[in-house]
Simulated assay, not measured.
Amino acid sequence: MIELVIDARKKDLGGFEVGRILPFHSRRMVGPFIFLDHMGPAEFAPGSEAINVRPHPHIGLSTLTYLFEGEIMHRDSLGYTQAIRPGEVNWMTAGKGITHSERTDPLKKAQGGPMNGMQAWIALPDEAEEIDPSFQHYGEDALPAYENGGLFARLVAGEAYGAKANVKTSSPLFYVHWELKEGVRTAPPPGKGAGGMSERALYVAKGQIEVGDRTFHEGQMIVLQPHAEPTVKSLTDATVMALGGEPIGQRLIWWNFVASSQARLDQAKADWKAGRMKLPDEDDLEFIPLPEDAAVTTRSEPLPPKPEPTHPV
């Protein structure tokens, strides 16, 4: 039932540590999901820098930010300023190009507090790679939820279990947040053989679960076989993200850029280096420079094992 297990790798993003799950050397994507970070869990002391990601660019993808705890302030080059809180979604589509920053509000910095959440990048299909950039914020009421017998489930994006989230996506996918009490049994959306999605995975954000006869713990992603229909049992109280979708074809990823051609990546590099990408109006005094040493472009299909390149948020 299980194709691969991926352990999150710790990455320091300037004083804040994340668990980097995708891309992985032998599994670059799950459906259109090309990047997945677990942000935290962390507890920021009062007066600390907390989240402080300076303006940076994206092309060819949508970012999906979803929190379990804490708050992040988003500002982008389209003029949007939007705080995201637990149970909400910030969905930003870069298309032909956008810049944004992600920071902790000064008042929240002064207070300190927890941070725990997920950031995913969803690669855009060929016909949407160069669309105009856009940003949408979705509250809890836009995300279908279900609770019964120790299981809480929220459909963060896409379609699953006969429900559809209001989040506007560009290709078939699902992204589900489970909160499981100890001993609860559930199942991911169906796989390819049952009329579901071709590629699926489970990420354990907290606790322990059992899939088949194997046990998995916090920080592990379980990539499922296309036709597998496993039962998932929580061995402790657990938080799990179920995700998947249909493949969209090979994609290249370099730094914050995703594209189907090297030429498009090179153009994005040149545009950012030359200052041709607009900064957010309310956050334009600094930015993350092009990382000249990030010379490795990684591909979306499996590659032989090698050290992971750096992919700043």
Rank of each mutant, 00 (worst) to 15 (best):
I6T: 09
R9C: 08
F16Q: 02
E17Y: 06
G19T: 02
G19A: 08
L22Q: 03
L22C: 11
L22D: 01
F24R: 05
H25A: 10
H25K: 09
R27T: 06
G31W: 04
G31E: 04
F35G: 00
L36P: 03
H38L: 10
H38I: 07
P41Q: 01
A42G: 05
E43V: 04
F44T: 02
G47F: 11
E49C: 02
N52G: 10
H56N: 10
P57E: 05
H58E: 11
H58Y: 12
S62R: 08
S62V: 02
L67Y: 07
L67M: 09
G70H: 03
M73C: 12
H74A: 07
R75V: 03
S77G: 09
L78Y: 10
L78G: 05
Y80G: 00
Y80M: 03
Y80Q: 08
R85P: 05
R85E: 12
G87A: 08
E88I: 01
N90D: 13
G95T: 09
K96M: 12
H100S: 06
D105E: 15
L107H: 11
Q111G: 10
G113W: 07
G113M: 05
Q119V: 09
P125S: 06
E129M: 13
I131W: 02
D132W: 01
F135M: 07
Y138K: 01
G139F: 08
D141H: 12
D141Q: 11
L143S: 00
P144K: 04
N148C: 06
G149Q: 11
G150D: 04
G150M: 04
L151D: 01
A153C: 05
V156I: 15
A157N: 04
G158P: 02
E159Q: 13
Y161R: 10
A163E: 13
A165D: 01
V167H: 04
S171N: 07
F174E: 00
H177N: 14
L180W: 06
E182P: 02
E182V: 05
A187L: 08
P189S: 06
G191P: 06
A194Q: 12
G196P: 08
M197L: 14
M197V: 08
S198L: 11
E199S: 13
R200V: 05
L202A: 06
L202F: 05
A205R: 00
A205I: 02
Q208R: 15
R214P: 01
F216D: 01
Q220K: 14
M221A: 15
V223L: 06
Q225L: 13
Q225S: 13
A228F: 09
L235V: 12
L235I: 13
L235G: 09
T236D: 13
D237C: 00
D237M: 01
L243W: 04
L252I: 11
W254Y: 11
V258K: 00
S260P: 06
S261W: 05
Q262I: 14
D266K: 12
K269A: 14
A270T: 14
K273P: 00
R276W: 11
R276Y: 12
K278I: 12
L279V: 08
P280K: 01
E286F: 13
F287K: 14
F287R: 15
I288M: 15
P289Q: 04
L290D: 09
A295N: 15
S300V: 06
P307F: 08
P309G: 02
H311Q: 07
V313Q: 09
